[in-house]
Write a protein that binds this DNA or RNA. Structure first.
Lengths: 211, 211
DNA sequence: ATTATCTATAGATCTATAGATAATGC
DNA sequence: ATTATCTATAGATCTATAGATAATGC
């Protein structure tokens, strides 16, 4: 045989099960049955359920981390274009991995072991980019390109708008949410909302009020 | 004895465990130990784990439903004030129940039994208010009070902004998210973003472009 | 004499492995 | 003769209950 076809099939089935039901809700027998292999095979290729899960989680975390980092790397263009481009890439990534945020969020929150790890990772990968972004935002505000804004608030606005729809889609798809054309419109909507948010206010008073 | 003190203690402990770890991740022994009662007591007051869970879920769903309905009931004021007031109430509700959205989302998505139920509930409670809202938005746009906007997009914007921060708070609290003063600023930010979104555009071209 | 609590354990469910058998590579 | 697959079952974990004992209400 010598091919790791079975191993791959099991891993993919595990991925689907874990993403849908989480670690606690997933049964190794279900993974095996979804993969169409004997249950003993699962333990032949992967020692334990935990190990199989770690593999899936690590891969997904890496995927997620890369998507964030790559988005932050955009630079050397006007701030509004930069934000717009970053949002677009972020949205596309989510569309390709719609169940990822819910999965990571849940496993991390419901399992103490991962919480500490995740919090550290967030602090580490977020702190410097956050400072840089704030600097760029301040500079752009100084030039009158955009209004003054706190980087965390901006990022939270963007993340909220981009991520949330994908999270709730399975439940609210009956009222017209979901599907290619919806997400196309949604992407435009999200970027529009943020662009408007960044626009310098005509009445200078307002700047002071909110910042 | 005749007081149902123990019963209440168990129910509250169950609520905490379920909200944190979900149905599959929760152990009845853990609930009992959190409640500080003998494990057998749990089955004395509540026949099964499933039954205990149903009680918690039903209560939380009702709470959630009421919060949505009550927000939709606001009327008889200018559209922008109405939206602003609704957002404010919605935000306050979430601040009082920060882990509710994640819990409901997860249980509903990871357990098929609940999915059908939830989808029906959404369709039923959302359809009419959605039509009414669209009507009001269209009327207000006609008068030039706001720009044209699709009701679903607006609601999705609002829900995203209001809910998301509470969902991720446990993970990102290390970078300054969370706490009374943060949420106060966050609430203002969310309302501001939506108010700007509703503002009629100065260049009439833009209206056509996005709608 | 009814209601609440405990101990001890049965029963159900899920993960993991031993050991036998079949398939492939050399 | 090494690698892959199967059957059958052990072992671990979790839920649920039986039955004995203690506490309260009348």
């Amino acid at each position: 045989m010598r091919d790791n076809k079975t191993e791959k099939i099991i891993l993919e089935a595990a991925e689907q099960e874990f993403l849908l039901k989480g670690f606690a809700g997933t049964r190794t027998t279900e993974i095996a049955s979804r993969a169409g292999v004997n249950h003993a095979m699962l333990h032949y290729y992967f020692d334990t359920k935990e190990q199989l899960f770690e593999k899936v989680l690590a891969e997904k975390m890496e995927l997620f981390r890369n998507s964030v980092v790559s988005v932050f790397e955009i630079n050397e263009m006007p701030i509004k274009e930069m934000v717009s481009e970053a949002m677009s890439r972020h949205f596309d990534f989510l569309q390709a991995n719609p169940s990822l945020p819910r999965f990571l969020l849940n496993e991390v929150i419901s399992r103490q072991e991962y919480m500490a790890r995740a919090r550290q990772a967030v602090t580490k990968i977020a702190e410097e980019p956050l400072r840089n972004l704030q600097q760029r935002l301040d500079d752009a505000a100084e030039c009158g390109e955009i209004c003054r804004i706190d980087a965390i608030m901006l990022l939270m606005d963007i993340a909220s708008l981009n991520i949330f729809a994908f999270m709730v889609e399975p439940i609210v798809s009956s009222v017209g949410i979901g599907g290619e054309s919806f997400y196309q419109a949604r992407k435009a909507e999200n970027i529009r909302v943020i662009m408007q948010r960044l626009t310098p206010n005509s009445e200078p008073l307002c700047n002071e009020m909110y910042y």
